[in-house]
Amino acid sequence: MTSAECPVCEAEVEPEWEVERGEIIDCGDCGAELEVADTEPLEYIEAPELEEDWGE
C-alpha cells in the first residue's frame, strides 16, 4: 500500500487497506481528518469540518 503526505503536518499517512476516493482517514501524528482526494497517486486534502445542523 502506498502512502501520502498529510497536508496539515506533513506526516506520511499509510492506510492499511484499499482506500477509495472520498474516504476519511485520520492522521496518526496530528489527528487531522483527511479526505482521500485521489488514489492514483494517493492524495489527501483536509476534510471539511462538519457544520452544526440547527434543524432550520
Partner: peptide
C-alpha cells in the same frame, strides 16, 4: 505550523522518551 512540525519531529523523532502531543481531535490535544 508545518515549520513547527518539522522542528519538533527533527528534534525528537527518534527519542524514546519525548512524544509530540498535538492533535486536532480528542480530549488531550
Amino acid at each position: 505550523e508545518k515549520e513547527l512540525w518539522k522542528a519538533y519531529r527533527g528534534a525528537y523523532g527518534d527519542e524514546p522518551f519525548v512524544r509530540v502531543a498535538k492533535s486536532r481531535r480528542g480530549v488531550y490535544r
